[in-house]
Design a protein around this nucleic acid. Sequence first.
DNA 1: TCTCCTTGTCTACGGTTGTAGACTAACGCG
DNA 2: CGCGTTAGTCTACAACCGTAGACAAGGAGA
Lengths: 191, 191
Amino acid sequence: MAEARRRDAAATRAAILASARVGFARGGYDGVGVREIAEGAGVTAMMVNRYFGSKEQLFAEVVAQIMAEPTILTRANIEAPDFADRIAANLVDITAGGATPLDGFLIMLRSSSSDQAAEIGRAQIEAHYHRVLTEALAGDLAPQRAAIVLALVSGIQVMRQVLALSALTDADPADLRGLLEPLFRQLVRAP
Amino acid sequence: MAEARRRDAAATRAAILASARVGFARGGYDGVGVREIAEGAGVTAMMVNRYFGSKEQLFAEVVAQIMAEPTILTRANIEAPDFADRIAANLVDITAGGATPLDGFLIMLRSSSSDQAAEIGRAQIEAHYHRVLTEALAGDLAPQRAAIVLALVSGIQVMRQVLALSALTDADPADLRGLLEPLFRQLVRAP
DNA sequence: TCTCCTTGTCTACGGTTGTAGACTAACGCG
DNA sequence: CGCGTTAGTCTACAACCGTAGACAAGGAGA
């Protein structure tokens, strides 16, 4: 951040968006102020409102951007025969699979305390994550199985990144994959 | 709240604690102010600091109180042969099992945005939930299996109570138990 | 070179936050 | 009955929040 950029609207807008994403991911909607976001982008707080109207609209744009990024929960991935392996690997090594991890979850969890922010992402999670997963899983109780898959994914992420449980952060990735794969395999298969 | 109570230190303290618990559970550490907490207890904001020193110490006390309550994660429950059934039932019907649900999780997740609050509950979760579960599970990779159990439990709770995923809130409890039980059974059994 | 639109900053506002000190009123005890 | 301790309130402060308007400076076209 804070490069020597002057009078470049597109770059400034992008810088604000990037700084906001970092800030919201760390502290949620209420955990970061517009002044801090602006400082991270090398501009003044007023620029945030100039470019995005308000903090709330900026948050909505950040969430929409994150949700639109490719995740492990794509149709092709889900329907692949080794989906359980892939998602387990992605959880253990969040950079695996060439997909952004489900950052949307963390931001939403951390922002769920503010009513304005909660509803913004709730619909997005349901639309982008749960719906596509439900359709791909098919079979009996597909919505419920999809929800449990999401619960497991978000739960692991929370334990690793929010609570930093050493049992997960310091464990042998192969061991973790060995524990997670059977769980996902069971959920992918219709009962 | 707001009963006709006057000059009763113990009752006032308890009322503040109860109001704080409700507030923190709904909005997390930053989601509720001391004035709002005090109003819920029928007193002035200053009483919070008088009785608890600061908002942060009040939060610590609330978290400690919640963590000390009996949950489904007791040694007796975990070592019972039907632990998987019990925890699945407890997740589906959070009043089942005569145990307070893991409210501590929700409060911590919603409060994880504030640094001060995060560390307070992190240690408590590790001590009260993860440690006892690890000891009871025994066998290979017990800490990892315990962490995944916690991840699943917290994930389900998040999906139900924070994101209010209709697939979980409106589903037939028997169906959910049928999906969850095999997962927990697999985790309880040492690999 | 002059001009005008865009990009950015500065100052400031009303509101809310957690906290502090001074003050009032009720209760128990002699 | 009087008095000291204690539960409680009131006012206020300093800091921060999101937002607004006025103003300065850069850059491109005439």
